[in-house]
Design a protein around this nucleic acid. Structure first.
Lengths: 119, 119
DNA sequence: TAGCTACTTCGATGAACCTCTAAGCAGTGG
DNA sequence: CCACTGCTTAGAGGTTCATCGAAGTAGCTA
């Protein structure tokens, strides 16, 4: 899937393979814990956060957090790097932008396209 | 959740309740079949499509398509209306736009915010 | 009324998923 | 070398989910 994968969702029918790839990406963010992980990492000072900054925000065990981070990393949404004792995660903006492009703002009525009503 | 629910994902940490609501919305689109259903409905002439226009595009039974349409409708992504024999579905743009706002384009480096280093 | 088509609801099955505990790996420091 | 902390991997248990066949509802037509 290229960086600029697909037209906005309502522009033209998605191919089966594009839909599969986008669905996999969306499944990675379709979880409240992972959504909050992303937002915490992305808004953290320096653009990155170590796992120790994350576990405190959840009533979950460390292995569970690690599991969610792995899913985000596998999906290409974040990248992790070990520096000494700690592992730091950072958002990969290109992947997030792909989702933004998919749901790019629609015109509200979406009916002008048809020549139905000039008014 | 208001129309303009949340700041972009990487701007500030999501609240637990916002994350839960957004995750529910994302789970509705995190499926290749539903993604294609949305794109077919949205790009169909007239901005709407009847179920009979949809089933032909999938190797799935009618109950399964109906199941996916119900999930999209429950999530507020589409709206259905019966006219005579057929049922027509239409995208609700406001809900789609909510997702677009969540993944609004990020600046690529995202490090200028810190005053860490101009160079 | 009866019959036909379009679509939805119901109930069941098998796969995928979130969470945990236990155990393993990496790095630091006595 | 041993102990300790930070994080990940492995395996298990309970829940959710996609899909199907069968049955139900809604509308048209004769």
């Amino acid at each position: 899937m290229s960086l600029e994968c697909c037209a906005p969702i309502a522009r033209e029918p998605l191919s089966e393979s594009d839909a599969a790839e986008l669905a996999a990406l969306l499944k990675a963010v379709a979880d409240p814990v992972r959504l909050r992980l992303l937002s915490i990492i992305g808004s953290h000072a320096g653009g990155e956060a170590c796992v120790c900054d994350l576990t405190g925000s959840f009533d979950l065990t460390a292995p569970t957090i690690s599991h969610h981070l792995k899913i985000l990393r596998t999906a290409g949404l974040i990248d992790g790097e070990r520096r000494g004792t700690w592992v730091y995660y950072r958002i990969i903006p290109e992947t997030v932008n792909k989702l933004g492009a998919l749901f790019a703002p629609m015109a509200e009525p979406a009916r002008a396209d048809l020549g139905l009503a000039p008014a």
